[in-house]
Design a protein around this nucleic acid. Sequence first.
DNA 1: ACTATGTGAGACATCAACGTATCATCTCTG
DNA 2: CAGAGATGATACGTTGATGTCTCACATAGT
Lengths: 198, 198
Amino acid sequence: MTESATPRPQRADAERTTRKILTTADQLLGQDPTTTLEQIATAAGVARATLHRRFTSREALIEAMTVSALTHVNEAIEAGRPGTAPPLVALHQVTANVIDVKSGWRFTLNHTHPASDAVSTLQDQITHRCLQLLARAQQAGLLPAETDLSWPQRTYYALLDIAIHEHAEHDTNTDELADRVVTTLLNGVGTRVQQPSQ
Amino acid sequence: MTESATPRPQRADAERTTRKILTTADQLLGQDPTTTLEQIATAAGVARATLHRRFTSREALIEAMTVSALTHVNEAIEAGRPGTAPPLVALHQVTANVIDVKSGWRFTLNHTHPASDAVSTLQDQITHRCLQLLARAQQAGLLPAETDLSWPQRTYYALLDIAIHEHAEHDTNTDELADRVVTTLLNGVGTRVQQPSQ
DNA sequence: ACTATGTGAGACATCAACGTATCATCTCTG
DNA sequence: CAGAGATGATACGTTGATGTCTCACATAGT
C-alpha cells in the first residue's frame, strides 16, 4: 500500500529534493506562515524554479506537505499497536511515536487546511485509531465508562501539542514527555487526594 | 490608566469603527491568515482607505489587535480576583472570564507575533497572574507542593484553548466549560478519584 | 447651526510574489 | 558509457496586495 501504484517512478535524486523541500517548508512556515516560496527554496538549497517544477502552486505544496505529514503520523500511530497492545502500553508508545514525528511537522499539522479528499481520508484514519485506543482504555477501566470520548480526545491532542512544543524547544526526552502526557491525561496535574482545604 | 495621556481624543464615531475593524480582522484572519486588508475592510463595513488611515500597515493592524486582545484578557483575569478569591473559586471564575474574552480573539491570541514592548509587557502581566493563581492553588494543596508550575500552566492554557474552541463552535455554556477545564486540569479525564483499592 | 473630523469612492503608483520558459550543465540509472 | 532526467541560473510577464492622494459628502460635538 506504500507506493504500489506509482505511474512514474521518481528518480532517487529528485525524491530527496522533494522531501527536503517539504520538511524545510514546514519549518519556515511554522515560524512565519507568510514565508515566500523563494525563501523556502533557498533554505532547502534548491532554486526557486525547482520548487515550482515540483509543486505547481503554494496550495499544491501545502497539500503535499499535509499528505506527507499525515502519512507519517499514521505510521507512527500504527507502530504503537493501538489496537492490540495493552491500553496503557499502547497509549505511551503511540504518544512517544507521535511526539517524535509531529515535531517535524509543526506547521502542517497545526493549521486546519481546506482538506482534500486524500487528506480527509488520512485524518479520518488518525481520528479513528485515536478513538479506538481511547475506547480500549475505557473498556480497561482507565476512563469512566459513560464518558463521551470527544473531550478526552481533545485533551489528548492538546497535551500532545504541549509535549511537541517542549520537545522542539528544549529537546526534552521523548519518553519522559510521553509519560507526562499520559499521566496528565488520566490524572491531571492536581494532588491525588482531595485535601481538606487549608 | 485607561486613556489618561491621550493627546487627541478620538471621536466616538471613529472609535467604534476602529473596534469594528479590529474584531472583524481577528475573525477573518482566524479563518485564513492571508486574508486581504481589503477583505477585512469590506467585512468591517468600511472603505479600504479608512482602514489604511487607522493602521499604516498590516503589521500595525496586528499590533493593535494584539494590544487590544491582551488588554481585554488582562481585564478578564483581573475580574476573577486571582490574587484574593479562594483558589478554586478564582480558578473557575478566571477560566470562565477568559473563555468568554478569548473567543473573540482567536487569531490574535494564538499566533506568537514578534511582540513589541507594549505587547510583551501585557503578556508578562498575564503570565504573572496565571502563575500567581497556580501558586496559590499549590499552597492550598490543590497541586503537589514540589511541582514545577510550568507544566500545569501549559496544560491550563491548552485546556483553555479547547474550551474556547468548543465555545466558538458549539456555543457550549461558559460555566460548564470552565468547570470541565478546571476539573480536567486537576483530575485529568481518568477514573482515579474514589478508587482506593482495586 | 457651525466646524472640525471622519468617511467613501475612486484613481494612481509601486512592488514583491508568483508562474513560466529557455538553455547549459550536471547526475542518476541502466 | 550514453541517454533520460533533474537542476541552476536567468529572464520575462502577470497579477494582486499595498500604500497614498484627492475631493465631495456625512457626521459628531459644541
